[in-house]
């Protein structure tokens, strides 16, 4: 059996992530396959610091809050039955975020990364979305939606498109403002679309590309072929359930709202209706051409 090296420095969605060195997990090959494409030699000072809960000596910032993750579903515990739930502690510090949790397998490690990104991104002007993503003609299309919404069907059926991700994506403004500028400029300029890694299982490896975001596409399955621009306020409400964010307080709500407002001001939000076999991609690409 070969040795699979787990990288300890990653860059995802433009943010630098550090993992504990020489991380030991039960499914090293799987984890390496999924986060390996995001490895960097030197990511600079980390925005997201991931620590193992097995290291009691790890210095953890004050003011932490706890999120419980359902290891069966790989997401925050929603059913409250306490089954396979693991705690993760998070704390904002030095402009970034620290996450401490069980890092014994790919789900544990990637969940920690997701939690850090999902909570830090809105404060930096970006969002993590539950979404599929496609690259076509040099630009990106993101399809937010819950499981069963048709986002995967739409992404897979995108004629001439390359699927970048099937479950988690990051959208954020491009340019020097990323990472610290005022959110008042977020409605201007170009936005970028990034894939974010998953933990394997039914999720395949993703393409760690950053592409200009051409449109946010809301899918309506099993309806006559059509493309329609969604007004801004309705777009925000419809996009909100797709935002990966599992602990709202007033500051988090304001941050997510600000980013959503910037996103819908800068990027067209389009509803695509289609039936299986419909070639909607040509209409969609035409609709976002300047």
């Amino acid at each position: 059996m070969g040795r699979h090296v787990i990288p300890d420095r990653l860059r995802i969605g433009g943010l630098a992530i550090s993992l504990p060195p020489a991380l030991a997990v039960t499914d090293a090959a799987n984890l390496a396959a999924h986060i390996g494409p995001f490895a960097v030699a030197d990511s600079g000072p980390p925005d997201v610091v991931v620590l193992s809960d097995l290291d009691p000596s790890a210095d953890f910032p004050a003011g932490s809050f706890r999120i419980e993750v359902n290891r069966v579903l790989g997401g925050p515990d929603g059913d409250g039955d306490g089954r396979s739930v693991k705690p993760y502690d998070l704390a904002f510090a030095n402009g970034g975020i620290a996450v401490r949790g069980p890092l014994d397998d790919a789900i544990g490690v990637v969940s920690a990364i997701h939690l850090g990104l999902a909570h830090l991104l809105p404060r930096r002007g970006g969002l993590m979305l539950h979404a599929s993503a496609v690259r076509a003609a040099g630009v990106g299309f993101v399809f937010p939606g819950a499981s069963g919404s048709g986002k995967t069907t739409a992404a897979e059926g995108f004629h001439g498109g390359e699927m970048l991700a099937d479950e988690r994506c990051i959208v954020r403004p491009e340019g020097a403002g990323w990472g610290g500028a005022s959110t008042s400029t977020m409605g201007q300029g170009r936005w970028l679309l990034h894939a974010a890694p998953m933990w394997g299982g039914k999720y395949g490896p993703v393409v760690p590309a950053a592409v200009p975001l051409a449109a946010v596409v809301l899918v309506r399955k099993d309806a006559p072929l059509g493309v329609e621009v969604v007004p801004a306020a309705a777009a925000m409400t419809r996009l909100a359930p797709g935002v990966v964010q599992n602990r709202y307080d007033a500051a988090a709500a304001e941050a997510v709202l600000a980013v959503l407002a910037g996103l819908v001001a800068a990027v067209p939000v389009i509803e695509v209706s289609f039936r299986p076999g419909d070639r909607f991609s040509d209409v969609l690409v035409r609709s976002v051409r300047p």
């Binding site: 306020a233 909100a240 988090a252 709500a253 709202l257």
Partner: peptide
């Protein structure tokens, strides 16, 4: 609600309730 955040977008209030 002091914990809620809102914005008026295109003449419509969009309100997040944590």
């Amino acid at each position: 609600n002091p914990d809620a955040a809102f914005r008026v977008i295109d003449g419509q209030a969009v309100i997040v309730v944590p």
